[in-house]
Amino acid sequence: MQPHKTLDITADYCPITFVKTKLALEEMKPGEILEVFLANEEAVQNVPRSVRSDGHLVHLLEGQENGIYRLLIEKRGGEEIDPD
C-alpha cells in the first residue's frame, strides 16, 4: 500500500496530533492513503479512533523497533462540509 502523503507527528501531543492528521486528510482526495508516524501512547490510542469517527478507514497501525508507530489511513469522502 503506497502512501500518497506522509505526516510525522512524533513530536506532537493530543489534540494537535489529531488536528494535524485531520488537516492532512482535508487536502487529500478520497481513496488516497496517508501515512502517519506517531510516538506517544495517547496519540496511538486517540488518533485512529478520531480518524475512524470522521469516517476514514484505518488500514494499519504497527509498532516499529524504534518505538515509533506507523499508521495507514485511507481518506474517505463525505465527512467534510463544503458550503460552496
Binding site: 489534540p15 488536528v19 485531520k22 462540509i81
Partner: peptide, 22 residues
C-alpha cells in the same frame, strides 16, 4: 495554517463543520 494557527484554532479545526477549510 501556520503551526501557531493550528494550535490556536485546534478546537475549531477538529469540528467537522469547521475543519482547516472553515
Amino acid at each position: 495554517l501556520t503551526e501557531e494557527q493550528i494550535h490556536r484554532y485546534a478546537r475549531h479545526i477538529v469540528i467537522p463543520e469547521i475543519g482547516g477549510k472553515g
